[in-house]
Design a protein around this nucleic acid. Structure first.
Lengths: 224, 224, 224, 224
DNA sequence: AATGAATGAGAGTTCATTCAT
DNA sequence: CATGAATGAACTCTCATTCAT
């Protein structure tokens, strides 16, 4: 529809083309800018003007795409966290291998795709400011916490069903997996606390070690 | 000392007593109210009117005792965290027992006196908002982070000097002690993340387990 | 009455004596402190705490002696300006000499007793802030402007009556005397404007010159 | 320039015209309102809400155009005083005639363009409140006092160079020109002092007389 | 008589949100 | 679709004045 007002193709008029293309990319650019700033300064301390400016649009334009600052935040969460779960669930649907391998794989790709990216800052943000923005916290629980827990629970359940893991109370066991990852994210995004003496935490090693520890705890003991 | 000028006991002269007691208690009441709110809502999101109201005074009164919101925060930190270090250092000066016992004792009393109290929320607060309030972050580093590190370093050094611990790079080793405690505090003050299914972390057990793990890693191996 | 509670004479108990004596001097000390500060910073910008502090009493005490900041200001005006007129009028009542001499004398003693003192800052203050404090302005007009004008008018009238001065419209002529003095006060109290290159105005010379110029203009011309 | 994008005249499209015109006119309207109020009530006593209200906008809008009350004041000074100096310097660059004529012309146009306007109230304002707002005072010195002194100095220097004026210390001589003008401004803006009996000062006559007196003093005496 | 703790209205400033263009 | 000027509620901090002691 936008092209109805165009006389020249994108090729002939590259400047305009850029503009038009951007028009469709706007929400994505805003979300990217918002992710950066939310992670850097927190939700309350991030000003919408800044987000708009970093995305190269005006403040008014932002409100054209997102009803409010909170809706913008939700979009950031969906784009960077909850949107991933469908993909992940699909991957695990077809995963072949032991539950142990599944868990190892799960945590490795989580680190690659989320933990090591800016998106992991959203978790810290929610921990810090969730109390002041209950609606945001609730949304995050629905969209991220529950699916995440479900995913881990599923892996563990699979191990138990196959006899690979000992039967345990899943409600507790999932935290053995999740807690170290949360710690890792918090550590990563709290540099101010350890400015002197670099934080001595190599994430990949940390994850590998923690994974094996947890697996040790989960495995079914044949002798028992 | 106020009573030195009083002829009658509080019982006989309740009105005066009330006034005088409150006058001297004001800063403490304000600091207590501020601790509550800062921990609950964060620094930026806490309104000075609220602090005043919770302490039972007007907004103006707060500024009678604290030059600014930031000074109020510093007072909260001093009262609840940094003020403790002199006492602790004194305790360790006369501590008799192995370095291992010293570390176990240290972490246990830390949990009793700080970790389990609201004061531990200040650490989370600084992690979240330190970036937005550089002066506060710097103050916290000077008053809490540095003395805290020094205290742990001292224990480890003692163990190394006595041959109880293997010689290690202290700059890294102290984090093996501190990191789990920081995690514990963050966990404790981020309930929004784990509302469903109670957080399965029993702090005292967690500390005990972590302590033994760290000690395992620190001990000198006679065979080596 | 204050002495009714004294056991020892002032001589025997100098500390207490000082206190008692000060008690009666309080209003005067407050007025002196207020003069300093009003002249230095203006009426609105002077805080009553500062006045009290400079007088060595508490803020509450100030309000014991003066109903309000405005009343304090009025007291400063009476003490330093309007109170002088009775004395001056008396002096002129018995002054012997020509009207010219009287004017010269008048301006010289005005400079000595008012113009060269801090009190002259009150005039500048009224010029600056009179518009914002109508009641103060009105008070000043009643207490200072009118008596001042009357005094000058009287001198000129005497010169005219005696044939020494030419008959002129007094309403205008008095300004020929007063305006240069006002300029002098403004200049004196507006140093910020001429920080570079010291103000080249020697007040005594300025007054002498202006006086002679005005007298030239006032004298009756025998030839006419 | 705004009209370049308009197809219809203001008359045909009054709504748009109104908006656009106002948008560009805002800073000017705010500066005009601020000049009025600053001159009327002084800097500290002028409320930003009042300035905004008089300009027909909300308080927030004012801060859209000026970072702070102080910046607003500086803009008022630039617009009404310091901005004029380029124009004046240009005029004097091409002035033909004696230094005496130049001085006469200078003071006459100064009165027309500044002295007789509200802008002259800014000088009084700085004299009164400069001490309480050092940054403002410094700005005024840089932007107004120095250029003003330079302009007068230049005229006098020209007269001395041409042999028209006797050689004198310029640092002092410029005050002979400036001081009477300052007095005039103070007088004009201090009506409270002379409400009864109209101030007997006709500004144009005053300037003419003062100018001739100063010129008398400056002229080179051929006989000497 | 003297205190000084307490007040609360009001100041300058910020920022998410709206809406005419 | 895009703008950015405009808003106004909310924030921190100030200070003349009061009043229990």
């Amino acid at each position: 529809m936008a092209s109805s007002r165009r006389f020249f193709s994108d090729k002939l008029c590259p400047v305009r083309a850029k503009r038009e293309r951007r028009k469709e990319a706007r929400p994505g650019e805003l979300i990217a800018a918002a992710l950066d700033l939310f992670v850097e300064k927190g939700f309350a301390a991030t000003r919408v003007d800044e987000v708009a400016a970093r995305a190269g649009v005006s403040k008014g334009t932002l409100f054209l795409y997102f009803q409010s600052k909170e809706e913008l935040f939700k979009a950031v969460v969906v784009e960077n966290l909850s949107g991933r779960f469908v993909e992940w669930n699909a991957e695990f649907e077809v995963f072949e291998g032991s539950a142990s391998d599944m868990l190892r794989y799960c945590l490795r790709v989580w680190w690659e795709r989320v933990g090591s990216t800016k998106a992991s800052g959203l978790t810290k943000l929610l921990m810090s400011e969730g109390g002041n923005f209950p609606e945001l916290a609730e949304f995050y629980r629905q969209e991220v916490v529950h699916p995440g827990h479900a995913l881990v629970r599923r892996i563990l359940q699979r191990g138990i069903d196959s006899g690979e893991f000992a039967p345990v109370d899943l409600d507790h066991a999932i935290y053995a997996v999740i807690a170290p990852m949360m710690f890792l994210m918090l550590w990563k995004h709290s540099t101010p606390m350890c400015i002197d003496g670099k934080s001595e935490l190599d994430p990949e090693t940390f994850i590998a070690v923690q994974t094996e520890i947890v697996l040790q705890g989960l495995l079914a003991r044949p002798s028992a």
